[in-house]
Amino acid sequence: MTSRSYTVALAFTLLGVAITAIGHAIGLFVAPAEAMMGDVGRILYVHVPTAWNAMLVFLFGFGAAVASLWTGRRRWDAWTTAAVEVGTVLTLLLLVQGSLWAKPTWGVYWTWDPRLTTSAVLGAAFGVVLLLRRLIDQPARRQVATAVATIVAFVDVPIVYMSVRWWNSLHQTQSTPKTIDKMMAVPLWVSAVGILVLSIGLVIARWRTETARLAAEERAPDLPDAPAPLHLDQESR
């Protein structure tokens, strides 16, 4: 692996942070308060970009999982893992943000509404993928398990998106450019692009680490745990 991809990861991350900072500055200090929600409505500029990008990162992870099973290449295993991890971080953040937005607006921190329930399932499902990955030592089996689990967990992504249309919910339906004032749409889009660029940087960085870890594992497959007791048994007989 070259260090060029590190430069790319660093550049995307820093650029993403800068764009997001600009978007948030506009959203917090320039854009107007919302007619009903007041200043609380400014949470829009961080919550909605987090949601969109979590879904995009999972979509990339889904594609990587398909490629991982099709080609069997280690690099796709690393891409899948990196995307699942970054997407899970964004989803957990999303749940905390949403909860802190719900209290002043809806009146409760949490309710088992379809959007909230399916989002919680999303975080849990991809959390399980990461856990599963840690439990399997054998690289080829781990690659298959990770990819299959990622594809299955991904089913929840379109369900989360459509939940507000398919079922009665407390959460509002998706906003469109028509339902958001222009002065609010600008910081929303800038922040969304910023967090997208940041997420790309994070996925590349995590991919580098995971690739190096898998390569090291292949070169030195001295797994200390599982086989050891068996050998001792055989020798003592």
Binding site: L28, A33, E34, A35, M36, M37, G38, D39, V40, G41, R42, I43, L100, W101, K103, P104, T105
Partner: peptide
């Protein structure tokens, strides 16, 4: 009116 005192949450 609109929600007052929301900056803490923000």
């Amino acid at each position: 009116g609109m929600i007052q005192g929301g900056w803490g949450y923000v």
